[in-house]
Design a protein around this nucleic acid. Structure first.
Length: 289
DNA sequence: GCAAGCCTGACC
DNA sequence: GGTCAGGCTTGC
């Protein structure tokens, strides 16, 4: 599942091989993957050069430039659940579920977008539209300060797990790294956000950074589908301590990792290391010890 | 039937 | 405004 570390790995791969390339042909094999009219997409990106790459959370944007050097909007990529961006030679057979091909500099090199589940999308955006999309997201999880983290957590009543997954508060975490960060910080995923103590908040902030930085260094986690632009899987999978390890012993204390649905998402945690706070049940709005 | 990210809409 | 449920998709 592409979360921040996987998207960052894709960005770094693209930065090394598509910057200053011109998109000379656009082939859309599955129009439903394009957000908005296909014609606008085509006209927006065809003939443009890729001037640079930007990322906020899981959103990836290719900055475009016209032949005269003027800015020419963005190609916005969201990988959804199973989206893959790979560099391939034009004559190499298409992998199944390849939806878009962008030929570079007349070929043979091209960017291919593949997506089995088709939860992802490609979109042409003006700079204003792109800023709107990025602006709707919270700060990038690796850019945000502890002060911002605390400020955005403050007063939230829902489960901390749901808060971590909500991209408008903090951008970049998905189910894998949310569970891993909560495990590292020893916080039960169903703890109401406003019951996370100040000390725990600090631990959680540091755990989010630590887990994401480590995962970026290892080129992400390949649970099912994720691969980088050269088709290689990430190396973080063996480092997962809680995600999808229900029934296995906790690497810290040996208790069996449990799985439960919280906020509609499966959550994996150690019932011994990650205790629920005992005093948050409310009756008639009053705290009951 | 389940998993995921993200969008929409219902509800208070 | 927040919070939650539903729907999209398809290989396992």
């Amino acid at each position: 599942m592409p979360e921040l570390p996987e998207v960052e790995t894709v960005l770094r791969g693209l930065r090394g091989c598509v910057v200053n390339c011109r998109i000379t042909a656009v082939e859309i094999l599955h129009p439903a993957i394009i957000a908005g009219p296909c014609q606008r997409f085509r006209e927006g990106i065809q003939g443009r050069e890729i001037a640079g790459l930007e990322r906020r959370g899981k959103a990836l944007a290719l900055r475009l430039r016209a032949s005269d050097g003027d800015e020419a909007g963005y190609l916005l990529l969201r990988l959804g659940m199973t989206g893959q961006v790979v560099i391939a030679n034009h004559d190499v057979a298409l992998a199944p579920h390849t939806h878009v091909r962008l030929m570079l500099n007349g070929g043979p090199k091209e960017i291919r977008y593949r997506d089995v589940r088709r939860f992802g999308s490609l979109r042409y955006c003006t700079r204003q539209e792109m800023e709107q999309v990025f602006g709707a997201l919270g700060p990038d999880a690796l850019e945000m300060t502890e002060r911002e983290f605390r400020g955005r957590l403050n007063g939230r009543k829902g489960a901390i797990k749901g808060w971590l997954l909500n991209q408008k508060y903090i951008a970049g975490l998905g189910n894998i790294y949310a569970d891993e960060a909560l495990f590292e910080a020893r916080i039960h995923p169903s703890t109401p956000a406003d019951r996370v103590s100040s000390a725990q908040t600090k631990k959680l902030f540091e755990a989010v950074r630590h887990v994401l930085q480590k995962a970026v260094a290892l080129q992400g986690t390949s649970f099912r589908d994720y691969v980088d632009i050269d088709g290689r899987p990430g190396n973080y999978l063996p480092r997962l301590k809680a995600y999808q390890r229900d029934g296995e012993p906790c690497p810290r204390c040996g208790a069996l990792i449990r799985r439960m649905i919280i906020g509609g998402r499966s959550s994996h945690f150690c019932p011994r290391c990650q205790r629920r706070p005992t005093r948050y049940k409310t009756l008639g709005g009053h705290s009951v010890p």
